[in-house]
Amino acid sequence: MRSASSPVPLGRRQRSQLEQEARIIGAAGNEFRRSGVRHANIERIADEAGVSRSTLYRRFPSREDLLIAVIHQVRRDLVKEVADTLAGLDPRATVVEAFCLAMTYFRNDELPRRLLGENPEAVDVFVGAADPQVEDMISEFSRGIAQTLRSSGASMPDRQLQLAAEVQVRMFISLTTAPSAVLDIGDERQLRAFAEDFLAPMVW
């Protein structure tokens, strides 16, 4: 007998729909990177995803819906990459590497660069600042960082650890939405020195 807490297996139709949406999101991400959002070809996205144009619009009624889905997927991928990369590091090294990886990923990925080139305010959507659930997003990221820091050996009280994690998330959002005139976020050495001097000491 399945316990009350056990996940309920998805039906074949639900799995098919989720797989279809994942293909559409993946194809849209590729097209946005190639052509930008404004010039993205919806037919090309549908063809690459293996669906009809009408199916694509049934899943994602507008280009904005599709863009938001792509950005959310990129954010999830970044969180997973950070978690995988930080395995085995001590708490302070975890803070430094997480910060540098997130900033470098944001700076180098073609999608945010396309978004910033066409529509500077779109960075808010990428980091979550324009999302109606922005506080939920910050809380989700903060919890993930706090859990990673705890598993890496952080011994500070839970509330302090959660606050330190939230400060790091908010610092990332601030630097990507309103770049500093003092800290060059394009300089890896400056980013690392900043994280070592100001962010890592918050965690113990």
Rank of each mutant, 00 (worst) to 15 (best):
A178T: 15
V79K: 00
A164K: 02
F172M: 06
Q168P: 00
A154M: 06
P61Q: 06
L86T: 12
D47W: 08
R23A: 14
E81K: 02
S139C: 09
F106V: 07
I45H: 02
D109L: 06
D84R: 00
Q17H: 06
Y105F: 14
R114M: 11
P7Q: 05
V70F: 03
V127K: 00
D158R: 14
M202P: 06
D124S: 13
V123P: 01
K80E: 12
R143M: 04
S6L: 13
N119V: 05
V134H: 14
R75D: 10
P9N: 09
D131H: 15
L183F: 09
E135G: 12
V134Q: 14
A87F: 08
S3T: 12
A129N: 05
I45Y: 03
N108A: 12
D158G: 10
L66W: 01
E97Q: 07
E140Y: 06
V123Q: 02
S16V: 08
L175S: 04
M202C: 11
R34L: 08
H39K: 15
A93F: 01
E31K: 03
A195K: 02
A98P: 00
I173A: 05
L149Y: 06
G117E: 15
V51Y: 05
S151Y: 04
A154V: 06
V74Q: 02
R33M: 05
I138S: 05
S54R: 15
M156W: 05
V74G: 00
A178V: 12
I145H: 00
R34T: 06
E196Q: 11
L67Q: 06
S155P: 02
Y57H: 10
R15H: 15
S174Q: 15
T94E: 00
N41Y: 05
L101S: 01
E48C: 09
V134I: 11
I42Q: 07
D184T: 10
D84S: 08
V37G: 01
T85N: 03
L66E: 00
E188K: 10
A195V: 13
R75Y: 08
V167N: 05
T148R: 11
V51E: 07
L163S: 11
A122G: 03
G144Q: 06
V95Y: 01
P7Y: 03
R159D: 12
W204A: 14
R75K: 10
V203S: 01
P179E: 09
A83E: 11
P91E: 05
I45C: 06
R44Q: 14
C100K: 00
S174L: 15
V74P: 00
D47R: 14
V37Q: 05
